[in-house]
C-alpha cells in the first residue's frame, strides 16, 4: 500500500503542504478560500531547533488512535488502509483519547468543533493534496519499499514506529 514518505533533508518549511491540505478540505477548494474559511490543516510542519520536520499520520497497521477510540468512529479501512474518524456510522465526540494515544501527535483537536482532526489520506484523489503540492518533493506518495531503494536513511525514519 502506498503511503506518504518524508524526505527530511528536502523539506524547507515553506508550509505549502499545509495550505494544500487545508484547501483540499475546505468548501472553496482553494488556498486563499481555505485561509478565509480558516480550514485547519491536517499535516504539521513542526520545528526542531528551527528546522522544519513534516509530521503527519502514517495510517498505522495497528493504529493506536483507533484502539483508544471509545465510539468506534476512528477506524482503519480494510480496503484502503486509511485511518479516519470521518464518514463512518459511528461519530466522533471529541473525547481526545486518540490525541492521548497517537505516538506521532498526528491527531489534534479541531480548533472550533468538538471533533478530533487528522489526515484522511485524501480518499478519491490520485495522491494526497500535500504530496501533490510539495514544491521540494519532500513528500512522496510511494510504496515504502520503492522509497527505501532511493533513500534508505529516511525510509528507515518513516518505518520506525514510536511505540
Amino acid at each position: 500500500m502506498k503511503s506518504i514518505m518524508i524526505d527530511l533533508d528536502a523539506c524547507n518549511g515553506c508550509l505549502t503542504c499545509t495550505l494544500a491540505c487545508a484547501a483540499a478540505h475546505s468548501r472553496s477548494g482553494s488556498i486563499v478560500g481555505a485561509m478565509q474559511e480558516k480550514t485547519p490543516a491536517r499535516i504539521f510542519i513542526e520545528a526542531v531547533n528551527g528546522r522544519a520536520v513534516p509530521v503527519t499520520c502514517r495510517h498505522c497497521e495497528e493504529p493506536a488512535c483507533a484502539e483508544a477510540c471509545m465510539t468506534g468512529a476512528m477506524r482503519k479501512d480494510s480496503l484502503t488502509g486509511l485511518v479516519s474518524n470521518e464518514g463512518h456510522e459511528q461519530k466522533c465526540v471529541g473525547c481526545w483519547m486518540c490525541i492521548m494515544a497517537c505516538p506521532y501527535g498526528a491527531v489534534t483537536a479541531h480548533p472550533r468543533e468538538r471533533v478530533a482532526l487528522k489526515c484522511d489520506g485524501c480518499p478519491g484523489l490520485p495522491q494526497p493534496a500535500c504530496v501533490a503540492a510539495c514544491p521540494n518533493r519532500a513528500l512522496r506518495y510511494e510504496e515504502p519499499a520503492f522509497f527505501a531503494a532511493g533513500r534508505s536513511r529516511d525510509a528507515a525514519c518513516s518505518a520506525a514506529q514510536a511505540s
Binding site: C11, N12, G13, C14, L15, I45, E46, A47, G50, R51, A52, V53, N136
Partner: peptide, 13 residues
Amino acid sequence: YQLQQPQCGFGMQ
C-alpha cells in the same frame, strides 16, 4: 519567535 518556527526556507534563502 517560537510561534514562527519553522520558517520558510524559500524566504530564508
